[in-house]
Structures are given as structure tokens and as C-alpha cells.
Design a protein around this nucleic acid. Structure first.
Lengths: 144, 144
DNA sequence: CAACTGATGCGAATGATTCACAATCAGGTC
DNA sequence: GACCTGATTGTGAATCATTCGCATCAGTTG
């Protein structure tokens, strides 16, 4: 029951919000665009307006429930907040992996401090060739 | 004379391209949007179409002369390629500083390798409060 | 300096995202 | 459990950055 999560965030527990949250939870490991969320809801017989999805995702972001990314192409991808982690993206197949490295986090804090900044967040994305057998094949267009 | 830079990149040395390159060089330390470049050219009596600026900036990017960033807001900012470096952005005044840390670069390579990736590039942005006296005041809108 | 090919400028087209506003719903109240 | 009030939604139009299409023009080559 995620009604409580919404309440905690100061948001009314409306049906669209619950359904959107549900989609995000069912795709914890992915990075979804607003459009993706929209389509997954349609597949689920839930006809929620795109504008609502954008609105709700922004509210979730403000509430800290969701993280918004702008990888290469500039258009927004969302994922549930699941603690600090960074991304590794294959430039050939588009696969996105996540990783966490404490030492790196620490060094980032140190570098920020050295420049007089009080670090509040960061974005680190590593791009490379994943070198797996089924890379190219899997030229991730979509997963409809 | 940067005509040679363009030739090397396989691009004809046309007036628009030379002028755009000039603007970038005069603003080495900044991060300009296509619109910014457009306006700076207008200020200089150079009336070059916005579409051309977008086209040329993309060509420069392909040629490795320019780097395209998508910081928070998702819209594109460009800067001259000046060797590897990362960014520190003040969340209050918007100031962008650059830094370089060899050890961090190394650790990134190691982490990518650990996941089987052959690292080709990366993006690291640290967000924080710059804590300088004239921070807020200087609420960087533009510098027209 | 003529010819060939790529480059430009313009305005229209696109795609993601946001807005405006009337209709509807959630949550507290009696 | 019906009511009230302000928050939320759906719709379609609006906006913003960016790209396209195409006729015209300019660099380069010989």
C-alpha cells in the first residue's frame, strides 16, 4: 500500500498517482520516459492523460520519490528514488547499468569542498562499450 | 586563423562557421546555448540563421571541436573542446565552474572495466551551494 | 572563372513538455 | 454517509527547443 507514501509527501492519494507509482515500482530497474509510463498504463487499461503524468512525475520529483535524468539526448527519464547510485551506459546497445562506489562519492565531496562548494547532489554517467555477446543485436529501440 | 581547424574537420571554411567558432573562442569559459550564440552574433552585426547555428554546432560536435552538455534542464549547452574536465554547478546562483581530477578519472575507468565496459567518455556534474558572498545576488539569468 | 557540391536561410514541421480551464474527486466535517 | 472546499484531472491548445525541406548561394577544385 503506497497511499501512505503519497500522504507523507503531502499529496492526496488519487488514483492516477497510485497507478503511476505502481508502474514505477514494477519497473524499478528501468528508466522510463513520461511517454513510457503513459503507454504502460494504457496497456493496463488505465487511461491517464499525458499531462497528468508529467505533472505527477514532477510532483514526485519534488517530493523526492523519483529522480529525473537527462542522459545524452536531453529528454527526461524517470526512476524511483532508491538511494545514491550512478549509471553506466553502453554507447552501442543503449543498455543502462547502475553501480555505486563509496570511495568515488567521498572523493566527489572532497573535490566540491576544495572549491568551496557544499555538495548537495551529483550526476555521474559513464559511457562505453559493454562488450557483451548480444550487445549490438539487442540494439535497444524499445521493448514494446 | 581557424580556417585550418575547419578544413581538418572536413568542413568548408564558410563565413558562418568561422563566426560561430569565433564566438565560442571568445567565450571559452562559458557554456552557451544555440540561442546564446545566435544573440552574440546579432550583437556583432552577424545575422546568421538559428537553424544554421544548430547545424554548425552539431557538426562541430561530430568533429570533436565542441562538447554538448545537457545539465539539469535538459536543453543543450555548448563549449569548446578543451580537454577533459568536469563541472561544479551552484544550485543557488547557477554559476558553473570546471575542475579536473586525475585520480577520479582513473577510478572511473576502473569501475567501468569492473563491469566489463570499455569506457569512452563520461559526464560528471557536482551540484551544491557555492557559498560565496555574492552568490544569490548574482542570480545568473544571463549576461546580455 | 566555370562547374560541382556542399552550405545557408527561411519558414514550416516536429516532439517533448506545459498551460488553461472547466469538470471531478479526496478528505475532513457534521 | 451526504456536503463542502480546495486540490486534481482531462482535454486540447500553446510553447519551447530543435530539425527539416528546399530553393538559393558560396567554397573549392581544376
Amino acid at each position: 500500500m503506497q497511499t501512505s507514501d503519497l500522504r507523507k509527501a503531502g499529496l492526496k492519494a488519487t488514483l492516477p498517482r497510485l497507478k503511476i507509482l505502481e508502474v514505477l515500482q514494477q519497473n524499478k530497474q528501468d528508466h522510463l520516459s513520461a511517454e513510457d509510463v503513459y503507454r504502460k498504463l494504457l496497456d493496463n487499461e488505465e487511461d491517464i492523460g499525458l499531462a497528468t503524468i508529467y505533472r505527477v512525475l514532477s510532483q514526485f520529483e519534488d517530493a523526492g520519490l523519483v529522480i529525473r535524468h537527462h542522459f545524452e539526448d536531453g529528454h527526461a527519464l524517470f526512476e524511483l528514488e532508491q538511494g545514491p547510485h550512478d549509471h553506466l551506459i553502453c554507447v552501442k546497445c543503449g543498455k543502462i547499468e547502475e553501480f555505486f562506489d563509496n570511495e568515488m562519492q567521498q572523493r566527489q565531496r572532497d573535490l566540491a569542498n576544495k572549491s568551496g562548494f557544499d555538495l548537495s547532489k551529483h550526476t555521474l554517467v559513464l559511457y562505453g562499450d559493454c562488450q557483451t555477446a548480444n550487445c549490438e543485436n539487442d540494439t535497444k529501440k524499445d521493448s514494446s
